[in-house]
């Protein structure tokens, strides 16, 4: 399905890199490397240079920690969104938030996508997306409260649960007035899930793709990669790329990533293996 992400539309054979930009002092991977607004702004310029089509700006880390209220979250992200909008007019700007009030403020500042990593915790978020013509990412968390870790969560069938909840969320967004081509689903690896759940979601991702809704995957350096390979946060790129290749074979459209260049190559390679992208330049044996 053609994707309409705010100002930009993308044909249905394209894959998109969504680069993570943390306006946080405490996110697990970068540990505050882009906490200062100027650093976050520089990170945006860098990932654009690397070919990212989307930036995903977040002001609250996913894991539990210091409480960040709505005003503080807005303080962290709204001005940055406006600055990025002014500097990169054709870039798709996504904001990682579950709060409708924050969603409204960033859409007014020029955001194109609301990435609701917490699966509809605030029911008003879809109305904001509809009002501003923004896209929305509908994630599965198994009903987890924002910023909580999974504890003894079990599913009869995690893939069926992820499909049920994300499709229900997508239909709720559609009913609220969000355009069909601006709704994306995300199984949300590790959110309300243990490592076995995230591995199974990866293995069976094609079932989510078969729903017809475009699928986003957020795999980058996550704990399921760390636990699977028994490696720390700084050693998860190879495992991330393996999961990325499997997801690309299944047909995921958007990849939320820390490493843009490596992921782009991985996805292009898998997409070509799947027969959805020609090689860049092929002459060997064809001269």
């Amino acid at each position: 399905m053609t994707l309409q992400l705010g100002r930009q539309s993308f044909e249905d054979d394209t894959t998109l890199m969504m680069a993570i930009v943390n306006r946080t002092p405490d996110s697990f991977y970068d540990q505050g490397a882009t906490w200062a607004e100027d650093k976050a702004f520089d990170r945006v310029a860098q990932v654009v240079e690397q070919g990212a089509e989307i930036v995903d700006i977040g002001g609250v880390k996913a894991a539990p920690g210091v409480f960040i209220d709505e005003d503080e979250e807005k303080h962290r992200v709204v001005d940055l969104v406006a600055r990025v909008r002014a500097t990169h007019p054709s870039l798709v700007i996504s904001v990682d938030t579950w709060r409708a009030s924050v969603g409204r403020a960033v859409c007014e500042a020029g955001a194109d996508v609301l990435n609701d990593a917490w699966g509809g915790a605030d029911p008003g978020l879809v109305d904001v997306a509809a009002e501003f013509g923004a896209a929305i990412i509908c994630t599965h968390t198994g009903g987890a409260t924002p910023r909580t870790r999974p504890y003894r969560v079990e599913y009869d069938d995690v893939v069926a649960a992820a499909i049920h909840d994300t499709v229900a969320y997508a239909e709720r967004a559609l009913a609220a007035g969000v355009a069909r081509e601006s709704i994306v689903i995300d199984p949300a690896h590790d959110f309300g899930k243990n490592t076995f759940h995230s591995l199974e979601l990866t293995r069976r991702l094609a079932e989510m793709v078969d729903t017809g809704w475009p699928v986003l995957v957020s795999l980058s350096n996550k704990d399921f990669v760390g636990e699977t390979l028994d490696v720390g946060v700084g050693e998860r790129l190879v495992g991330t790329l393996a999961a990325t290749a499997v997801s690309a074979m299944a047909g995921a459209r958007i990849y939320r990533v820390h490493e843009v260049v490596e992921t782009r190559r991985c996805v292009d390679m898998a997409w070509s293996i799947a027969g959805r992208r020609p090689p860049a330049r092929a002459i060997r044996g064809l001269q």
């Binding site: 992208r277 020609p278 860049a280 330049r281 092929a282």
Partner: peptide, 16 residues
Amino acid sequence: GVLALLPSYAGLTDPV
């Protein structure tokens, strides 16, 4: 008779 001229062997950029 260069096979790279055939559409079935087209890449994103044309080597010929």
